[in-house]
Computed example of a mutant assay.
Amino acid sequence: MKIDYTKNPDALIPAIIQDAKTKTVLMLGYMNEEAYTKTLETKKVTFFSRSKNRLWTKGEESGNFLNLVDIKVDCDNDTLLVKVNPNGPTCHKGSDNCWQESNNQEYGFISKLEKTIQERKENATSDKSYVASLFEKGINKIAQKVGEEAIEVVIEAKDNNDNLFLDESADLLFHYLILLQAKGFTMQDVVSVLENREK
């Protein structure tokens, strides 16, 4: 990997720190060649601190180290993407990242859908939506709907209509997300089980 330190008069290049698992951007720091080398050697992310005017390993005082997973250089060879497993909060103010955001695993539209389901569950008595009505009917009805949708997916899988198969698959996933919340779980709980099986 060729890194160009010459574009900055201080021979420092930006290092974007990203959680390897959640993909959340945690912070921005600066590295010189010595900090980069030390990061590779120790597997703990080390920066050049402009305020302290010295090498600084994140976590050297707090214990909240950034454990190195991978480093990539960008197309201009002057910015690093550093993937890490953080040991505790990253920001010196105690938050998960330097933008005061939580470092939670997100699944794009699925996470958005889970939030909508949660809101409708919490307002089931006043909400007139389909989801709220399922929560009002209870766990047996929700589980029954998952079973019905699963059977329909199996039927459509044996057919040749891809659109119907995908429609039924979407229905199954949607009702499964409702069932998870009815049981007090989220997609992340299921993913954690799968991750543990991988080890």
Rank of each mutant, 00 (worst) to 15 (best):
M1Y: 03
K2N: 08
I3N: 04
D4I: 02
K7L: 15
P9V: 09
D10F: 07
A11H: 15
A15Q: 00
Q18P: 00
A20Y: 13
A20K: 12
K21M: 10
K21I: 12
K23N: 12
K23Y: 04
K23R: 14
V25W: 02
V25R: 05
L26A: 08
L28P: 03
T37Y: 07
T37G: 04
T39F: 04
T39K: 01
L40P: 07
T42N: 03
K43L: 06
K44L: 06
K44F: 02
T46D: 06
T46W: 02
F47N: 04
F47T: 00
S49W: 04
R50Y: 05
R50I: 01
S51R: 13
K52V: 07
K52F: 03
R54K: 15
R54F: 07
T57E: 08
K58I: 03
E61W: 01
S62K: 11
N64R: 03
N64W: 00
N64T: 06
L66T: 01
N67K: 09
D70E: 13
K72V: 00
D76E: 10
N77F: 04
T79Y: 01
T79M: 08
T79V: 02
V82K: 01
V82E: 03
K83R: 11
N85M: 06
N85T: 10
P86C: 04
N87A: 07
N87P: 00
G88Y: 06
C91Q: 06
H92R: 03
N97R: 07
C98Q: 02
W99D: 11
W99S: 06
W99H: 14
Q100G: 05
Q100A: 09
E101F: 02
E101R: 14
S102K: 15
Q105R: 12
E106M: 08
E106R: 11
G108I: 07
G108S: 04
F109W: 10
S111D: 07
K112M: 07
K115Y: 09
T116I: 13
Q118R: 12
E119N: 15
E119L: 14
R120D: 15
N123F: 11
N123V: 01
A124N: 13
T125M: 14
T125P: 03
T125C: 09
S126D: 14
D127N: 09
D127H: 05
S129M: 00
S129W: 03
S129V: 04
Y130W: 14
E136D: 13
K137I: 05
G138V: 12
N140V: 12
K141Y: 13
A143R: 15
A143L: 15
V146F: 00
A150K: 10
I151C: 05
I151A: 09
V154S: 12
V154K: 13
I155Y: 13
I155E: 13
A157L: 15
N161G: 09
N161D: 15
D162G: 08
D162N: 15
F165E: 12
S169L: 04
D171M: 02
L172F: 06
L172P: 04
L172K: 00
F174E: 11
H175R: 12
H175Y: 13
H175M: 13
Y176C: 11
Y176K: 07
Y176F: 14
L177F: 00
L179Y: 11
L180D: 03
Q181A: 05
Q181W: 03
G184A: 12
F185V: 08
Q188Y: 08
D189A: 11
V190W: 08
V191S: 10
S192Q: 10
N196M: 11
E198T: 10
E198D: 11
K199G: 10
K199I: 09
K199D: 12
